[in-house]
Amino acid sequence: MKRESLFMTRIYPVFFMVVVTVVFISVVSGIYLSTKERVLLNESIFQKMAILYAAGIDFPEGKPQEIQGIYEEKVMEVEASAGGDSQSGAEAGDGEPAYYEVELSAGETGYVVFTSGAGLWGEIVAAFGFSRDLSTLTGIEFVEQNETPGLGARITETWFKEQFRGKQGPFVLVEEGTADDANELDAITGATRTSNAVLKIANEVFEVAEEKIGGGR
C-alpha cells in the first residue's frame, strides 16, 4: 500500500483542478478587462455608423476617430423632452435620444429614428433615415437581428439595405430582383418570414417617425 495514494487520488486532483482553473480564468479575465473599453467604444461607434448610414452620409469604415468627427458635425441628438409630442415621453426615462436630426448632403435636414419589431427569431432593431418631410426614406441600417444565417440574415447585406434609399411607403414586397416603383421592396428568396417582418417594420416606421419627430420640427 503506497503512502502517497491518499494524497494522489483524493487531494492532488482537486488541488490541481483548482490551481489550473484559477490560472486560466485569471488569464482570460485579464484579457477581457484589457479589451473591455475597446468593446464599449466599438458598440457606441456601431450605433453612430448606423445613424450615418441610414441618413446616407458617407464615412470611412474602420476609422473610429473620423467617424466620431463626422457624427459630431452632422448629427444632433434630440432628447425626448425637447420637441416631439407627449407620446414620445415614454422614451424619456432610458436616456436615449428620441430621434436624431441630421445634416444631409445638400445641407438639408433629415431625421433618423430607431425602431424595432418582431423578427422570426428575435427582435429586429433598425435605424431609418427620413427626408425633411418624413415622406421618403434616405436609408436604413440594422442594429440588431437574429435571423437565419444565409437566409433572413441577408437583410444586412448591402443590396438589401441600399434598396430603401429614396423609397416611399406604404411598401409592398415583390420577388427578389424585380422591385421597380418607389413603394416596391425586393424580398429575400427563401426568407419569406423575415422579409415580411421587415416589411411590417418599414410600414410602421412612418407612424413612429411622425410621433417622435412630428411635433418638434
Binding site: 418582431a118 423578427g119 422570426l120 427569431w121 428575435g122 427582435e123
Partner: peptide
C-alpha cells in the same frame, strides 16, 4: 424576452 416568439410556433420552428 421578446415579442417575436409565440411558444407553439417556436416549438415547431425548432
Amino acid at each position: 424576452m421578446n415579442s417575436a416568439t409565440i411558444p407553439i410556433a417556436l416549438f415547431f420552428a425548432a
